[in-house]
């Protein structure tokens, strides 16, 4: 039996897709690397990764128990390690947890529908202690907000202001994954600039364990089971982040038209209070009768509606966007 990486642009891809399909799985679109275990020219197992998430893993039932899983995971870990990715994660069904925990993966949190395991050098307790240390915060009771801020709007500012008025100290976690229009660094800097006057607000990177509604893996999107994932996110927040930072209340902006966000709020309300963390819903601030949202800002920005944007954005974001290249603005200049 041989284990090797395949060319994802080549014909073997289809074979892997068929193999996964026969095991009730799909080769997800974001996969960057796929390894196969091949015996007598037949695929008997496969494993892939996207970023630091190990996924699309299957071993043919009649080959299970022969150590193929261990070989595949070693191969994938080696490749990840050679790319400088030493901390890895697996999202899977709880019944598969046992298999991976026998292969060096540790359970971070599990809901009845999903389990998150970490492998490589990842260690949530250690990681979060490091976050607390880097933030340089004290033990005061805190309020927390998790935001993507893609980009930072007056709506975000309003939510932060509200929390800052009602609490001694507020921590804003900016979602770290770079799947947004604006890069993480750009988003983080704008939030920091736009809240610099609020002395009891600390803005820090969300880190690896805040997943947020914007970054749920495709695995669950495919099954329309985002809510499953949201519960996991809420559980991790309640169990690890809240006690480490001494967070007693989490602020969330309402989003009347977004089912995903509503479900997320429901998950937070279901899980956080049992860990001693309150959930405070703040109604979205409006501009000319319409809620201010980052998606609305992005639409207006594409069309270069600067006058309207001025009402929705703090000066820092407005100035940033004016100096930021965008296909829409170029088209506009050409006109």
């Amino acid at each position: 039996m041989k284990i090797f990486g395949i060319n994802l642009a080549g014909p073997v891809r289809e074979e892997v897709e068929r193999f996964l399909a026969s095991n009730g799985l799909k080769l997800e679109k974001d996969v960057e690397y796929t390894a196969v275990a091949v015996c007598r020219e037949e695929i008997v197992g496969t494993c892939s990764f996207a970023g630091n998430v190990v996924k699309c893993f299957a071993v043919r039932p009649d080959w299970q128990g022969a150590g193929i899983a261990a070989q595949l995971l070693t191969h994938i870990s080696d490749i990840l390690f050679s790319k400088g990715i030493t901390e890895t994660f697996i999202f899977t069904k709880p019944e598969n947890g046992q298999l991976f925990s026998g292969l060096g993966y540790r359970s971070v949190a599990a809901t009845p529908q999903v389990i998150l395991l970490e492998g490589g050098t990842a260690n949530i307790g250690r990681y979060i202690n490091e976050m607390v240390r880097e933030a340089g915060i004290n033990g005061t009771e805190k309020a927390a907000i998790v935001m993507n801020c893609n980009p930072f709007t007056l709506g975000h500012r309003y939510l932060i202001e509200t929390a800052a008025r009602e609490n001694e100290q507020v921590i804003v976690f900016v979602v770290e994954e770079n799947r947004s229009c604006f890069s993480f660094t750009q988003r983080l800097n704008l939030v920091r600039q736009g809240t610099a006057d609020l002395t009891n607000v600390i803005v820090i990177p969300g880190g690896r364990y805040i997943i947020s509604a914007n970054t749920f893996p495709t695995y669950f999107l495919k099954d329309r089971q985002i809510s499953v994932y949201q519960e996991l996110d809420a559980l991790i927040f309640a169990r690890y982040l809240a006690p480490a930072f001494n967070i007693r209340i989490r602020y969330v902006g309402t989003e009347p038209h977004c089912q995903v966000t509503n479900n997320y709020v429901e998950a937070l309300q279901k899980i956080l209070p049992s860990y001693g963390v309150k959930v405070c819903l703040v109604e979205r601030v409006k501009s000319k009768g319409e809620c201010i949202s980052a998606s609305r800002v992005r639409q207006l920005y594409e069309k270069c509606h600067w006058e309207e944007l001025r009402d929705l954005l703090p000066p820092c974001t407005y100035d940033f966007l004016r100096n930021y290249p965008n296909p829409g603005s170029q088209a506009n200049q050409a006109d």
């Binding site: 150590g67 261990a70 070693t74 080696d78 390690f81 400088g84 030493t86 060096g104 490091e130």
Partner: peptide, 27 residues
């Protein structure tokens, strides 16, 4: 960082990296 070994039965997968803490930190 560096590593050696495998996750296969009867083996051990050892990963090492520079530490921000003093001493030998082992997990």
């Amino acid at each position: 960082p560096a590593k050696a070994g495998s996750l296969e039965s009867n083996d051990i997968y050892v990963m090492v990296e520079p530490s921000s803490e003093e001493g030998i930190v082992l997990e």
